[in-house]
Amino acid sequence: MAVFEAILELADDHLVLGHRISEWCGHAPMLEEDLAMPNMALDLIGTARTLYDRAAMLEGKGRSEDDMAYLRGEREYRNCLLVERPNEDFAHTMLRSLYFAAFMRPFWLATLEMTTDETVRGVAGKAEKEMAYHIRHAGEWVIRLGDGTEESARRMRDAVAALHIYTGELFESSPAATEAEAEGVLPVRADMRAAWEDVIGQVFAEALLEAPEVPYPQTGGRKGLHGEGLGHLLAEMQSVYRAHPGATW
């Protein structure tokens, strides 16, 4: 295991969630959201690009950012399962973003305090501010839908039931992440739990939602064990590049 793989895990989280959110482009329920979705997707994909570049450099085998994104198969992707979950409806989409951003913001803030990697520090400084926006945007929607109509509240509760089981994986460190933590590159993932629960607790209290007990958390993404959806996502995202290897645009 090596530090570059831990950075790759982070990059995969951001690319996969960014791609998922970009699927709303042109389909969002109102114009403002049609602008907001690609904006948030761009934040995530921009972060992924710098991280892929850094991971490729640390690996030292001459792979590029594009090789990392377009030429790895599903079993080689190391994203957590939460980010690949399908969009379903707006309740699922916004809750997924809230869960992720509420983890990433304290993670990046902690990274700023401790990392020895200048590129990672640069990414963290930018991303923690962007994650604050994502928390606010997604959080406002979760509150609006959870404390909304009977139908919106039902959908929000369904989203919590469907997605909460994937949140535990956010706090788990893979062997690669553990090494990156030991080397002072990334902070300990489990340390983010209090900050995450604080944000989720505030939003859920206003949204009239309850966090369920999770007897069997779903994990496996860091080992390349994914749900059915990721293969479809990658097929769409990678098809042009695989048909025209080396293409740039």
């Binding site: 997707a41 761009l42 934040d43 995530l44 921009g46 972060t47 690009r49 710098t50 930018k126 962007e130």
Partner: peptide
């Protein structure tokens, strides 16, 4: 320096 991570 970029403004946002993904600023096109």
């Amino acid at each position: 320096t970029p403004t946002y991570s993904g600023c096109p």
